[in-house]
């Protein structure tokens, strides 16, 4: 240290660790406050809550929790960027309203496999069953590992109910049936998927994990067209 002891920093700050800590706290707080607080307070920053984007059903919540457990977001993004090649490859670009009920968000940070934000409705239910059993049977050249355990492991309705209750507590609106008759709601939606899979000769029960995961994947990105119509009707193009 060649500079003199008369330097203001050396005189005023360095002997005073408390003041130093306070100034550091101020310095590291400003950026976060400026960027994050408006997300809660300024309308232009907040994603509007669109009528056309409903909360995930209990079965979709169960499927989303499986998606999270298996780390699908490590290799698959859920964000179609507003580029020509991405809308050609995946479909309409993503809007913030679509993520309204995403806790946690699953935009991802790598595309080892393709983006999944518009995968809902792209393939029949049976395709997802086959794809999880053996990815290369549906997608030649895939590097995805098989997930055969999803075809036998069961979801626990009480566990899903705990998730729905917690999501409701944190602000996602759920009906009394979702909260109290979760097992029945799960079976209602699960049976529809079981029926469609049966037409392809696949036998599963409504509480198999693959049914819940399929419900979630088939929901992904399907609100987008209704959302566009809703936004057009309101005559505003906010993001």
């Amino acid at each position: 240290m060649s500079d003199s002891d008369a330097h203001w920093h050396r005189r005023a700050l360095e002997p005073n660790a408390g003041l130093f800590a306070i100034l550091t706290t101020v310095a590291i707080s400003i950026g976060g406050l400026v960027e994050i607080v408006p997300m809660f307070t300024i309308d232009a920053a907040k994603p509007g809550i669109a009528e056309s984007v409903a909360p995930y059903t209990p079965l979709e919540v169960a499927g989303r929790d499986i998606y999270i457990r298996e780390g699908c977001m490590v290799c698959h993004s859920q964000m179609v960027r507003p580029f020509r090649d991405e809308t050609l490859r995946y479909g309409l670009w993503s809007r913030s309203e679509e993520y309204t009920w995403d806790r946690p968000f699953l935009l991802g940070s790598r595309r080892i496999g393709p983006d999944l934000h518009r995968v809902g409705g792209k393939y029949p239910d049976a395709w997802h069953y086959e794809h999880m059993r053996d990815p290369r049977s549906t997608t030649p050249g895939s590097v995805m590992p098989p997930y055969p355990w999803l075809l036998t492991w069961k979801i626990d309705p009480a566990d899903v109910q705990a998730s729905v209750v917690a999501l409701n507590r944190v602000g996602t609106p759920y009906s009394a049936d979702d909260l109290n008759n979760t097992a029945w709601m799960l079976q209602q939606q699960g049976d529809e998927i079981v029926g469609r899979m049966a037409q392809s000769g696949i036998e599963v029960t409504w509480d198999t994990e693959i049914v819940a995961l399929t419900a979630y994947l088939q929901r992904l990105g399907t609100d987008r067209e209704a959302l566009s119509a809703e936004v057009a009707q309101q005559g505003e193009e906010t993001r």
Binding site: G32, W101, S163
Partner: peptide, 29 residues
């Protein structure tokens, strides 16, 4: 602390108090 604010559902699972793009912004902050 700010990024991990969440409501527990079970002993091993919780859901963040932020959702969607706000959750994304807080996480990348």
């Amino acid at each position: 602390v700010v990024n991990n604010l969440a409501i527990p559902a079970t002993m091993t699972r919780s859901y963040p108090v932020y959702s969607g793009m706000t959750d994304a912004l807080v996480q990348w902050w």
